[in-house]
């Protein structure tokens, strides 16, 4: 389980962020006292840090600079400052992403998983699903001698499901991932893409791989 440290001084926001992350299957750790924040950041041994820019008595950017001297743990800045300059500064101090409040929860989760993947260099071209190889480079799923080519949309959907295998992935999550990749599909197109993906998997001898949970979403078994 990936551990995420939340550094945010607004108590309610911090609590809700922790709930969001826990629901999404992360281990959320909260920093409540900002004394010696840099040392706490290192001590937390987190896989990723969510850092607010404005903290009581200190500046998130300075904190980030200090932290960066000793660690390259990915950091996502969370901020209500909506200036291009703030973003440029944060990125130049070594932030991995910069998200402005109010963030849409599914977009935030998407960014978190993208940054974690980048950090783990897990963007390895090949992932396994049962005994099938999923290749993002070739855009295909191969099982034995058989290869099925997936369209870009199908691949995005399959990757989302695969990443959270066994969990419910909502249509909203899938839509967010598609739109984030400049694929502005509508509700119908999503259904069509999922049924195509299903039949392609079935042709590889993996029928019923994607289960529909009524009014909730999909689960990849």
């Amino acid at each position: 389980m990936k551990r995420i440290l939340i550094i945010e001084d607004d108590e309610i926001l911090r609590g809700e962020l922790a709930r969001l992350l826990q629901n999404a299957g992360y281990d959320a750790v909260q920093m409540k006292d900002f004394q010696d924040a840099a040392a706490q950041m290192t001590a937390a041994r987190a896989d990723l840090i969510l850092l607010d820019i404005t903290l009581p008595g200190l500046n998130g950017e300075t904190l980030l600079q200090e932290f960066r001297r000793s660690s390259d743990t990915p950091v996502i800045m969370l901020t209500s400052r909506t200036g291009e300059l703030d973003e440029m500064l944060s990125m130049s101090y070594g932030a991995d992403d910069y998200i402005t409040k109010p963030y849409h929860p599914t977009i935030l989760l998407l960014r978190i998983s993208a940054v974690l993947k980048r950090a783990a260099k897990a963007v390895s071209a090949v992932q396994m699903y049962h005994d099938a190889e999923v290749s993002t480079v070739r855009g295909s799923v191969t099982r034995g001698q058989q290869e099925q080519i997936l369209t870009k949309n199908e691949m995005i959907i399959f990757q989302q499901l695969l990443e959270r295998r066994g969990e419910i992935v909502t249509r909203d999550d899938l839509m967010t991932a598609l739109w984030d990749n400049e694929e502005y599909v509508n509700d119908n197109a999503l259904s069509v893409n999922i049924s195509r993906l299903r039949s392609k998997l079935a042709e590889l001898g993996l029928p019923d791989a994607i289960e529909t949970r009524k009014k909730q979403g999909y689960v990849l078994k």
């Binding site: 607004d10 926001l13 809700e16 709930r19 969001l20 629901n23 209500s80 409040k101 109010p102 929860p105």
Partner: peptide, 11 residues
Amino acid sequence: PVSGLELMCHN
């Protein structure tokens, strides 16, 4: 608070 509300609704 707007962020808080949005997260609460989602959670």
